[in-house]
Amino acid sequence: MGQVLHGSATTTEAVRRAIQHSQASLRSLAKRYGINQKTVAKWKKRTSVADRPTGPREPASTVLSAEDEAVIVAFRRHTLLPLDDCLYALQATIPVLSRSSLHRCLQRHGISRLPEIEGDKEPKKRFKSYPIGFFHIDIAEVQTAEGKLYLFVAIDRTSKFAFVQLVETASRVTASSFLVALIAAVPYKIHTILTDNGIQFRFPPRYANGPTARYITHMFAMRCRENGIEHRFTKINHPGPTARSNG
């Protein structure tokens, strides 16, 4: 089999092997083979005669930023949606995202294939059927080089229409703003929203029957009321439904 050397190689494997086994000085070896003394010293130190891999040690996208990739990974793991559904949901947040760049990103992170249900396991219980317009909203943490961010995720239980928004803080204000953006983005009427019991969506239980809840309306509840949306909550300590959107 012929040798495969990188384009700038000034030595062959035979020359490298001879250098490694020679007792001659760097100067004499450099003169003998017509190469730089630094090249001789380099091959003297190595135990192999093969070229080392060139290019970046870790593959990275030339289109997507590290933050973009963090959002994609968090969304995929949180929703388990197919490739094209992920693409449709994320393009508004990541305008440079294409189907090919999304696929390569999922491959780099080892999540290009959705987990298969094993034959011995019971199939997941299916949700009750609802007309389109029943959305689950959840929040996923996204770790980036700059720190922790939060990804609001909304998925229609029936149509699988998905909408996401990346924010710096997960608060009542950002949750309310996300709902307003969701209503504007969805091309049909939203009639029901299901969330967990986080403070982004309702007052803490200790305030449920106190003056806070009696005289002040939570911002998220106010947006729901203004748009004729029924707001439902998951059971306490029950996992968010968007993570099981394929169920």
Results as ranks from 00 to 15, higher is better:
Ala66Tyr: 00
Lys160Glu: 11
His21Met: 07
Ala162Ser: 15
Ser129Asp: 15
Gly2Asp: 10
Leu149Asp: 10
Ile111Glu: 07
Ala74Gly: 10
Tyr207Ala: 11
Gly240Thr: 13
Pro131Ile: 01
Ala60Gln: 12
Gly240Glu: 12
Ala41Arg: 15
Glu116Ala: 13
Arg99Met: 08
Ser176Asn: 15
Thr169Cys: 00
Leu81Trp: 04
Thr79Cys: 00
Lys124Leu: 02
Tyr188Val: 02
Ala170Trp: 06
Gln3Ala: 13
Asp138His: 09
Phe201Val: 00
Thr195Ile: 07
His231Ser: 09
Gly147Ile: 02
Arg126Lys: 12
Ala243Met: 04
Arg57Leu: 09
Met1Leu: 07
Ala154Glu: 01
Phe203Arg: 10
Glu13Asn: 03
Ala60Lys: 09
Lys44Asp: 02
Phe220His: 15
Pro211His: 13
Ala243Gly: 15
Arg126Tyr: 00
Phe201Gln: 03
Lys235Glu: 06
Leu166Gln: 11
Thr39Leu: 06
Arg57Gln: 10
Val40His: 01
Arg214Phe: 03
Ile190Thr: 14
Ser176Cys: 15
Gly110Lys: 05
His231Ile: 03
His103Pro: 05
Gln37Thr: 03
Thr11Val: 04
His238Val: 07
Arg99Glu: 14
Thr39Met: 05
Asn246Phe: 05
Thr144Leu: 01
Thr174His: 13
Ile94Phe: 04
Ala184Thr: 10
Gly133Pro: 04
Asn36Gln: 12
Thr47Met: 04
Lys160Trp: 03
Gly210Asp: 12
Pro115Ile: 06
Pro115Val: 08
Glu116Phe: 01
Met219Trp: 01
Phe203Met: 00
Gly198Leu: 05
Tyr33Asn: 03
